[in-house]
């Protein structure tokens, strides 16, 4: 898989089709990290294995990366979805990027036409259920490993699960879905108490925002202070406001990559909120994120004078 990717990347750079490749490379210890390959020789740095789950689409919005020229991006299915959603939201146009699509079975396909990518994503598995990264992802794989036998009982191994972002982090689409199901079945008071206690840990660092490919606003509502819409301090009200606002702004747009949760230094499962919102939106409006539709609808962004609800008219 890696070899084929490297060859493809080299060709794109050789042909001057793109100026850089956004992909995965070896990181510290067991981690992998984003690499930005700008010359054919550097393509050797690119790797592709089950650890490569981070959502690289977030870099497509970064000024510093855009300044480097036209990118090709290594896109596992979750990244493909984010790209399609960005295209649907007019944040990416044909010609802006080249997508090196990598499907679950390892098939590599090049897309320069984002409509084609949209069709490709639609033809793949639906957003949840049999999610790619779920079955092959390092997170689920190694959480199995760490629950087996003596390894997990030594102080060293339990210490290495310290970081919520280590590959051992227990988080997979199946587990997320299960957690959403469990939470949804709780009485409202308990659900509220759960979220308030989770939000109490929020530091208001906004790492969740920075890691989300779809949080691309130049000026986030929380950064506006004339007027101040959302309370900035990390106190209970400020934290509640932030999380409600974030979830609402991503409602029906979130592609469920989990990058926000992976970024959160204090392990708040905030991705479950956007996941639940996605279900609600699908139920109410029949829309799903990360899928190219003929006429994209943004139920929470659009206004029509003939709306059947009259409370906001």
């Amino acid at each position: 898989m890696t070899e084929q990717l490297q060859q493809q990347a080299r060709k794109l750079l050789d042909d001057q089709e793109v100026n850089l490749i956004i992909g995965y490379g070896e990181g510290s210890a067991r981690a992998v990290r984003a690499v930005f390959v700008r010359s054919p020789e550097e393509t050797e740095k690119l790797i592709l294995d089950e650890r490569c789950t981070a959502n690289l689409a977030v870099y497509l919005n970064k000024k510093e990366i855009r300044a480097l020229g036209k990118p090709a991006i290594v896109a596992r299915p979750s990244v493909q979805r984010s790209i399609v959603q960005l295209a649907v939201e007019n944040q990416l146009a044909n010609g802006d990027i080249t997508v090196i699509g990598i499907d679950d079975d390892g098939t590599l396909t090049l897309f320069s036409d984002l409509d084609k990518l949209g069709e490709h994503v639609l033809a793949q598995a639906p957003l949840r259920g049999d999610s790619p990264i779920a079955s092959s992802g390092s997170r689920s794989a190694s959480s199995e490993a760490s629950s087996s036998g003596e390894a997990s009982s030594s102080p060293e191994s339990s210490a290495s699960t310290e970081s919520p972002h280590s590959p051992e982090s227990p988080h997979s689409p199946e587990m997320d879905e299960e957690r959403v199901r469990k939470l949804s079945s709780l009485p409202m008071e308990e659900r509220f108490a759960f979220w308030m206690s989770e939000f109490a840990e929020c530091l208001k660092c906004y790492a969740c925002r920075a890691a989300c490919p779809l949080c691309y606003c130049e000026r986030c509502t929380v950064d506006c202070n004339q007027p101040q819409w959302v309370s900035v301090p990390a106190h209970p009200l400020g934290n509640l406001e932030w999380h409600v606002m974030r979830a609402m702004h991503l409602a029906g747009r979130c592609t469920e990559c989990g990058a926000c949760y992976d970024a959160c230094p204090v392990d708040i499962p905030l991705h479950l909120l956007t996941q639940k919102m996605h279900d609600n939106m699908e139920e109410a409006f029949g829309t799903s994120s990360g899928e190219k539709k003929d006429k994209p609808v943004f139920p929470l962004n659009s206004f029509r004078p003939d709306d059947k609800e009259d409370f906001f008219r």
Partner: peptide, 26 residues
């Protein structure tokens, strides 16, 4: 060094020595 940095701030918020603050009026 910083190309892959997301500018997310998590590093500073967990850091024991980071001392910067903001003033907010409510």
């Amino acid at each position: 060094q910083s190309l892959r940095c997301l500018g997310c701030g998590a590093c500073a918020f967990v850091c024991p020595t980071c001392s910067c603050f903001d003033i907010q009026d409510e």
